[in-house]
Write a protein that binds this DNA or RNA. Sequence first.
DNA 1: TTGGAAAGTCAACAAGACTGACATAAAATC
DNA 2: GATTTTATGTCAGTCTTGTTGACTTTCCAA
Lengths: 169, 169
Amino acid sequence: MSDRGTASGEGESLLFLTDEQLRKGIEAMFFAYRGFTADPDRILENYAYGRAHHRAIHFIHRAPGTTVNNLLGILGVTKQSLNRVLRTLIEDGLVESRIGKKDKRERHLFLTEAGAALERELSEAQRTRMRAAYRAAGPGAVAGFRQVLEAMMDPEMRRQFGTIKENGS
Amino acid sequence: MSDRGTASGEGESLLFLTDEQLRKGIEAMFFAYRGFTADPDRILENYAYGRAHHRAIHFIHRAPGTTVNNLLGILGVTKQSLNRVLRTLIEDGLVESRIGKKDKRERHLFLTEAGAALERELSEAQRTRMRAAYRAAGPGAVAGFRQVLEAMMDPEMRRQFGTIKENGS
DNA sequence: TTGGAAAGTCAACAAGACTGACATAAAATC
DNA sequence: GATTTTATGTCAGTCTTGTTGACTTTCCAA
């Protein structure tokens, strides 16, 4: 009932971006993000964890030895909020918190073997969906996907993206 | 520190999609979605509403006269959850709920003038960001963006996408 | 006509975000 | 050496938004 005349053809003339085309992009983000989080959400239910735990695990895996403060910057939540999540992950033996050698105020965070196992389970589910989407969309689409997403980020986040400190204790 | 050798070049050979490339896609979704919701979130603060209100307003605008049940299917929440949001929007005079003519159990939802005004404010902010991202990424990227997002949705949602009932009372 | 299903509402609860206040330890600065 | 700043953690309370359970009204079909 829409996009008539230019079937999926936003590409032709960017100067003629209609509100309708933009609205479709907006809704696509909404529905796609739901799909994107659906698989991990299902897995997390079995462990009584939520998305907050997933995010912490993801970024600790990605930047082993990161500090609490570092993680706060990436995740964009308050320390109280992150602390609740980290506490349960540490209690449950998925995350290890080591006091910094140079600066003893800092805590460096690492996944334990159990934490790494959950990380693999979660990320494998997500990668599988991402891989399927990439395949379905085709080679050309993937580069465009990443370019638009990157342009949609807030500038600070765009900086974070691909530049996360690893800081080994 | 990554993607070395194929600067933003996932396009070449999809058979060689590395975990690293997929991980970047996953994080791009995470950071981009944050940017995507940031502007509306700021606006909503002024009205003491949240994202749930935004979503309801968006889809009522998009499909005027839709029923509560319809909206439930689109939003993927429980009717009790949606009801709380709708109640405040109706109390505040942003949404009007009309009893169905054919089926008196149904409520058909419409934006009032005030509701439409907030919708415009919210969607204009979101369109502005989307437009900027599209421009920055370039014409070719936009089509790819939409293709990957669509492929990432759950199949039911892909059906909903672009096919929402308008059902006038 | 009556019993079940469907649409919507109310109440109570939980997760996970938030703010604010405060504590401790260590580092940095004066 | 004393003071201030930084990094982290904790307690208490609030808000949004999700949940389940129980209930009313309405419709429809046996």
